[in-house]
Simulated assay, not measured.
Amino acid sequence: MERTLGPLGPHPHEPHGNGFAAKLNWLRAGVLGANDGIVSTAGLVVGVAAATTDTTALFTAGIAGLSAGAISMAVGEYVSVSTQRDSERALLARERKELREQPESELVELTGIYQAKGLTPETARKVAEELTAHDAFTAHAEAELGLNPAELTNPWLAALASAGAFLLGALLPLLAILLPPASARIPVTFVAVLVALAITGSVSARLGGSPRGRAVVRVVLGGALAMAITYGIGGLAGVAGV
């Protein structure tokens, strides 16, 4: 599809705009969160399954890992996004103050930004004046800071999304280890997890615009290695009677 450009960048209705990029970031974060849930929970339940066939022990370990992982993801995402948002708000407050106290200097600065993008001095000045007249704060925030004051990330939504993605991913290995008969638990879980990782790796690569093959191989090999190591550790612990 041909990209439609206005004088300052992508047309707001085209999928190349900031809103679409933000949605892609959310989707990518969700896929990565699900991937973390799959790998960490799979490693945990496979390790426990190597040491015991007791269904209650497997269920308890899986639920504990799932809950702890989801809470950890939520807290980590909340703290990270809150810190980022605080920094963004501080930058926006400083920009608002500069616009109020030095409007002419800010206009010159905005003109210089668009001139550096390739516009002639006259066109850059006209664009800066028109944007300033329309919404000076938003124009300067987007051009100077790369921020849209109306689209700052909500840390609560980020925390919920991260926890939800982790939970969805973690459910797969938990069900895969609990539902089959004891003799088939490990192979069923290995296959289910590797297939799921191949899917998440492919989706993540597509969202990021990178080659799918390498992404899928990396995530599948990583997941297989994690399960193999925890399986070995669990087996040793079971033999030792720990």
Rank of each mutant, 00 (worst) to 15 (best):
Ala182Thr: 15
Leu147Gly: 10
Ala124Arg: 06
Leu172Lys: 04
Thr41Met: 08
Arg125Ile: 11
Pro187Met: 13
Gly169Thr: 09
Arg214Thr: 15
Ser67Glu: 08
Ala240Trp: 10
Ala141Arg: 03
Met73Trp: 01
Val216Met: 08
Ala141Glu: 03
Val48Met: 09
Leu145Glu: 03
Glu14Gln: 12
Ala136Cys: 07
Ala196Gly: 02
Glu142Ala: 11
Ala124Gln: 03
Met1Val: 12
Val46Glu: 01
Lys23Met: 11
Glu77Tyr: 06
Ile113Tyr: 02
Ile113Asn: 00
Asn18Asp: 13
Gly232Gln: 05
Pro12Asp: 05
Ala240Glu: 05
Arg100His: 11
Val217Ser: 00
Glu106Ile: 07
Ala42Phe: 06
Ser87Leu: 14
His134Ala: 12
Tyr78Ala: 12
Arg89Ser: 05
Arg96Gln: 12
Ala205Ile: 12
Arg3Ile: 15
Gly112Phe: 04
Glu2Leu: 12
Leu197Gly: 00
Leu32Ser: 03
Ile113Ala: 06
Val242Tyr: 08
Ile229His: 02
Ala124Phe: 07
Pro211Glu: 02
Leu107His: 12
Gly213Thr: 12
Leu110Gly: 07
His11Ser: 05
Gly62Ala: 12
Leu147Asp: 04
Gly209Asn: 04
Ala133Asp: 08
Thr230Ala: 05
Ala198Asp: 01
Pro173Ala: 14
Ser67Trp: 09
Ala198Gly: 15
Gly19Phe: 04
Phe20Lys: 08
Thr230Arg: 08
Ser183Asn: 08
Ala228Trp: 10
Thr123Ile: 15
Thr120Asp: 06
Ala165Asp: 00
Arg28Gly: 12
Phe59Gln: 10
Gly241Arg: 10
Leu145Tyr: 02
Leu110Asp: 00
Glu101Asn: 10
Thr52Pro: 01
Asp135Phe: 05
Ala93Thr: 15
Ala228Gln: 06
Leu24Phe: 05
Ala184Gly: 04
Glu14Asp: 13
Val188Glu: 01
Leu179Met: 08
Gly222Asn: 08
Leu168Met: 07
Ala34Val: 07
Tyr231His: 14
Arg125Pro: 09
Ser67Lys: 03
His11Leu: 10
Ile113Cys: 03
Thr153Ile: 10
Phe20Pro: 03
Tyr231Val: 10
Leu172Met: 08
Thr60Tyr: 00
Leu66Gly: 03
Ser105Val: 12
Thr60Leu: 15
Leu92Asp: 07
Ala176Thr: 10
Asp86Glu: 12
Thr200Tyr: 01
Val219Phe: 01
Gln84Glu: 10
